[in-house]
Nucleic acid binder design. Sequence first.
DNA 1: CCAGGTCAAGGGAGT
DNA 2: ACTCCCTTGACCTGG
Length: 300
Amino acid sequence: MNNLGYCCINLTLQKKNKITTNRTMRQATFLDRGISYCSELALLNCKDLYKILEWNSQNNVNLFRISSNLFPWNSEYALEDLPDFLEISNILKSCGHLATQSKQRLIFHPDHFVKLASESDKTKKNSIHDLEVHSKIFDLMGFVPSFHNPINIHVGCKLTKDSIQRFLNSVELLSENVMKRLVIENDDKAAMFSVKDLYENIHKQTGIPITFDYHHHKFHDSSLTEEAAFHLANSTWVTHKPVFHYSSSRLIETPGVNPRAHADYIHENISTYNSDIDIELEAKAKELALLQYWRNKQHV
DNA sequence: CCAGGTCAAGGGAGT
DNA sequence: ACTCCCTTGACCTGG
């Protein structure tokens, strides 16, 4: 059973009821209004997360990436310090229950500022903090730490002996809970980490599972076919079903643009090579792309 | 009230 | 050394 999911935003609910989990503020506002305003927005974000999970449940969606913007400016405080923390944690607990009841697999993908292989200590520290916050949110949802709820990141730096070592050193500093959730994804640039690079230099040493991104693979394949890379990544998920990423190139919809850009919809049939995996659709039309993909499948 | 310019963060790539 | 780009919505200001 290959479950399909979408990322962070539900356009239907956003349009109809202004439901969003991405409320934030600029630096000037943060300096002006501080943590109490963060708390207000985080509370609203978490309440809306529950509504999205309800929609997912009603629409048989059982894979969903939670936005990393639930808690604005969370590098600057501990979640427990928010004035509304008690209410927020109750809501997150409900979100966790709902997800479990309706068999939704929830996952995270922190943004590209997480650079565990950075040369800068500050950047490394911030990256570790960010990962710990993501893990903490899963904890608050009541999830037992495991790759059922992965936290997916890129190495996101050039592949060198030093960057590999820095990545491995940073991994040593992560909490047990983060390590039970952390997975790594192939980059889409030739100088960075392909599936094979991740396997040879990070997975072998740490056991960290590899997320296969079909689209990124097209830009950095290390001479592996899609199928070979797929199977190699698949083999690293020993205890849990893999979560892979799929997107179509925007070129199909908009001639002349950067081919790395994502399309609104999915334009191909996704090959799963007879394997049992979950797939996140990284399509700009979000849940609409998922619904359309399902509809198209039925007609085949 | 709305359109359009702007926005914390890292690092690769091109010049 | 410097700029642009990613990727993206949401903020926020000026009209």
